[in-house]
Amino acid sequence: MAAARSFLGVPVYKPRVAFFELSSCEGCQLQLLNNEDTLPDFLSLVEVVNFREAMTGGTDDYEIAFVEGSVTRGDEIERLREVRGKAKTLVALGSCACFGGVNQLKNRFDPDWVKKEVYGDRQVESERAKPLEDIVTVDLRILGCPINKKEVEGIMVNLAIGKEIKTPKYPVCMECKANGNTCLFDLGEPCLGPITRAGCNSCCPNGRAGCWGCRGPAEDGNLAQMTVIMERYGFSKETIIDRLECFGGFSDYASQLRTIKLKNSS
């Protein structure tokens, strides 16, 4: 058996971790398995005891639970509460778990119409999509749609050595400029980079696609001014609200905005 590891003399904590998914595409979990180069080191930091996407079997004896997806059904509420009860630390993994994600887009429509549109006449339970923290206490949020593997690796290292976990407080613009990108507004594209929390290494603007705000608001993001700017660049109120509503991180502000008349709105 390998000797217990330590960092600067402080024993390294190797938690028993489990991964679960509620209503989601399971893409965030897939991200974790994505990088084979670093996978062995990643796995040496944790003891995975339950990970349906990656292994068979599994136990319920875990300390940290990573939960992907939003809550849309009654059985998911029960399951989430059960996981919360067993886990010392509950981690919301990805935009769906943190804000409702793409799933919460349906919340703005009539629920019966949505069900009919998607499932036809089949009887399916599907309620409003909610983030985990509407149901249980969340200890840590890992942002992004999907999550950024590199960021998660850093978080895992910090969990292991017992160092505080921090996410950037600044917006995506900081990373976008550092990457030398031309501002999407200069190219005539809308972008939520100035108000969205960084940490994604501005991956969408790097590919010349405007930010959709999957990581939610940056601290002190100036949402009101962002709306003024979008308008000045000729984007309609619908375009602005579409972006703000996409992942649920800005839902309060988006619904507030629905009630305000903007210059460009039809």
């Binding site: 900081m174 100036n222 001014q225």
Partner: peptide, 13 residues
């Protein structure tokens, strides 16, 4: 200050 996005772009450019 009310206008500023606090995005850091001015410093980065």
């Amino acid at each position: 200050g009310d206008k500023c996005l606090a995005c850091g772009t001015c410093a980065n450019v």
